[in-house]
């Protein structure tokens, strides 16, 4: 079984980002970049499936600037067998990414595509679903458990109010939620071995996709600063404030 796993290059979750002074975007100059945490979970799940003997090959793919090959290398160090980078300096948006993933799916015919449910930069939560629509593959999103058996994948989904289990025929798409697994660290020997694993590079044009952004960002501003709280004298005052000032009761 072949697994395609997508990883996105995002600002590291520890970095406190700031808007650029002209308000056009988030300032990411000289900021530490990492694999999107949900994508890391996707890689881990793929590696576990390979360790269980379910999967035979894992292809890690990223799309973005040349430097996104660092994230592909990380996925290779974590256990993927080979990498693909679709190199583009465009602001790649979910639809373009889904179209390019579709082109790669057609080329590679994976049995399972695992993606993070969303990326921590745009928080779009769209790519997996769009890829499902474009390829007509069944999808199990927000996965907290994944089991592959007899040509099918059973995905336990985290939904409002509980869990839902769907049973999909392969090939299928899975997007990962936080509780699916706890990703491992890449050990130093594996980082070294990753250097020698193959990585193909394409451009959106190679894949026949127009990656021009469809959505324009008008402005970026920091959230309003939280105001200091106050101390209320008694319950009566609290209720009064909740009712008349906050208007929540």
């Amino acid at each position: 079984m072949k697994i395609l796993v997508a990883v996105k290059r995002v600002v590291d979750y520890n970095v406190k980002v700031r808007p650029k002074s002209d308000g056009t975007d988030v300032d990411i100059a000289n900021v530490k970049m990492s694999i999107n945490p949900f994508c890391e979970i996707a890689v881990e799940e793929a590696v576990r499936l390979k360790e269980k003997g379910v999967a035979t090959e894992i292809i890690a793919i990223s799309m973005g600037p040349k430097q996104a090959q660092e994230q592909v290398r990380t996925a290779l160090a974590l256990g993927a067998d080979r990498g693909i980078l679709v190199e583009s300096d465009e602001d790649l948006q979910p639809l373009a990414i889904a179209k390019m993933l579709k082109a790669i799916v057609e080329k590679e015919s994976p049995d399972l595509v695992i993606l993070g449910k969303q990326a921590i930069d745009g928080d779009n939560n769209q790519t997996g679903q769009m890829l499902g629509a474009l390829t007509s593959m069944p999808q199990g999103t927000f996965a907290s458990e994944v089991n592959v058996a007899d040509g099918r994948v059973s995905v336990t989904r985290e939904i409002d109010g509980g869990l839902q289990t769907v049973n999909l025929s392969l090939p299928a798409i899975v997007t990962t939620d936080l509780r699916l697994n706890e990703p491992r660290y890449a050990s130093l020997p594996n980082i070294m071995k990753a250097k020698r694993k193959p990585m193909d590079t394409f451009t959106p044009e190679d894949l026949g996709v127009d990656a021009t952004p469809r959505v324009k960002t008008l402005s970026v501003e920091p959230p309003a600063e939280r105001k200091a709280g106050i101390k209320v004298a008694d319950v009566a005052e609290l209720v009064d404030k909740l009712k008349n000032e906050a208007k929540v009761i």
Binding site: N14, E70, T74, A77, A186, L188, I191, K195
Partner: peptide
């Protein structure tokens, strides 16, 4: 190199 940086990232994740 990129491998040095990767080592730093992984070890930092481990330590965090």
């Amino acid at each position: 190199t990129a491998e040095h940086e990767e080592w730093r990232s992984q070890i930092r994740r481990f330590i965090e």
